[in-house]
Design a protein around this nucleic acid. Structure first.
Lengths: 202, 202
DNA sequence: ATAATTTCGTAACTATCGGTACAATATGAA
DNA sequence: TTCATATTGTACCGATAGTTACGAAATTAT
């Protein structure tokens, strides 16, 4: 939803661009790690004063939570779309792998996954962000489960493994791939591990 | 190697028990996370003053490195022993899974894996510990690779996947299992994911 | 113009944590 | 007994990071 023009308010006009700050914060957290980037650093990058940022997001916790929402919309959404597409199971798997191992550098996208990183640092996050991470994780597992159940009901799922365990398996593969990517392991090798992992399903 | 009795030295006798401190630090880092436990906390737990601890280990970095060495000896060693045992491949896999999903609570062992945790917080560690984490990771992968090559040469390895990718796959499964364990997922479910993952090999 | 209102940013405050100065203490040697 | 030596622990230092008090600045309403 675009920032709809409200009638001009009283007081000094706001110069802080919420979306711009969020985008910069997203990139910073994604690249440098959500617990390693200081508020002051984001302020410098976005050319915004600290009180301005606090006025907009309330706290470090609030900013991280807002960033996580944005990440969910930008990355997790498209990922979920693959799971619910009309393609066959095997093609969906192929699409998932392609999405995961796409060349980030050429696209200007940081390597790794912010959700995975936030889960790894779950205990260092604030209350709001921490809860959001938990919710997102549950949702991710539910998405996998629905995807697998659908494939099972279609007879496209070949493995004999309970849906819950299969969903956890998928999540582990994705997490592993994201970690390998951050460690600099070539996408081609990562693709081999993912292909092997999912070859057990279809 | 036991602390062999040296001839009584001059000066005030040392009351600090290095091994006791290391053990307490290991448990603290393992349970609470290597970057979340403060030096002062370990001092309180071990009933040791900060300067004493610094005299013994040099720095936060030095203590963490020493703890990682102990962990390697206590946990990673036995794990590696399974990979080099004289059992068949399938039995080794079974042993690995059993080792991973053994009931920690009843054994008084913290859940999760300190090596996995340290890798997740690699960037927050000091120089010495960080390098040690890297070395340990390389060694882990080499161990898996040797294990897989051996199984391949015996004809016990059924999957068509390059050894390097297979080793990374193994490491990812183990890491995933350790993370699930920390998140409180029942060992029975974790076992299902591991069994499925390794069923592709033998 | 003047007042009311809202946002702006400098400059501090506070807590935490890794690290250390230093004086007291406890031993062996002379 | 006295000196040399080595360890102990209290209390402090310095850096970092999240957070905020407060006065200046910019705009609308009267």
């Amino acid at each position: 939803m675009p920032t709809l023009k409200t009638t001009p308010k009283r007081g000094r006009p706001q110069t802080l661009d919420r979306d711009a700050v969020l985008k910069i914060a997203l990139t910073s957290y994604w690249t440098g790690g959500p617990t390693r980037v200081a508020i002051s650093h984001i302020c410098k990058e976005a050319d915004v004063s600290k009180p301005s940022l606090y006025r907009e997001f309330g706290s470090d916790d609030g900013l991280k939570a807002a960033v996580l929402d944005l990440y969910s919309e930008l990355v997790l959404g498209p990922f979920h779309n693959i799971l619910t597409s009309n393609e066959g199971f095997a093609q969906q798997i192929e699409a998932l792998i392609a999405f995961t191992v796409q060349d980030r550098k050429s696209l200007g996208i940081p390597s790794g996954c912010l959700q995975v990183a936030m889960r790894a640092h779950r205990e260092d996050l604030g209350k709001v962000t921490g809860n959001k991470v938990d919710m997102l994780r549950s949702q991710t597992l539910r998405n996998y489960e629905a995807w697998i159940e659908r494939a099972k009901s279609r007879g496209e799922f070949k493995a004999e493994i309970p849906t819950q365990a299969a969903a956890l398996f998928c999540d582990a593969q994705n997490g592993g791939a994201m970690r390998m990517q951050r460690e600099g392991i070539p996408n081609e090798i990562i693709k081999q591990t993912l292909t092997h992992a999912f070859s057990t399903f279809a």
